[in-house]
């Protein structure tokens, strides 16, 4: 799975977990907190994305990315290591 497919999965999960975002454009440069996504929702988005990608990782290993693009980079790197 390439990095952009992973980013598309993450953005899809953001929209599913926070339907209030509606048709608002979301890109790799966006940070979830800036989109108004709260911490519980953020963790749910990460968990759902891991599940959709087929990665079984401790959540703490997904900590650090500053925006959705960096999260996609990180998950892409983890996926290629397994």
């Amino acid at each position: 799975m390439d990095r952009d497919s992973i980013l598309a999965i993450i953005i899809g999960q953001v929209r599913e977990v926070v339907p209030d975002l509606g048709a608002q454009p979301i890109s790799g440069g966006d940070a979830m907190a800036d989109l108004g996504v709260n911490s519980i929702e953020r963790s749910e988005i990460v968990m759902n994305s891991l599940e959709a990608i087929g990665l079984d990782l401790p959540m703490v290993q997904t900590h650090g990315p500053r925006n959705l693009g960096e999260l996609a980079d990180l998950l892409h790197a983890k996926l290629n290591r397994t």
């Binding site: 963790s43 401790p58 703490v60």
Partner: peptide, 9 residues
């Protein structure tokens, strides 16, 4: 965020 993740793990 990190605290929530550690709690979940």
């Amino acid at each position: 965020d990190l605290s929530l993740m550690a709690y979940l793990d």
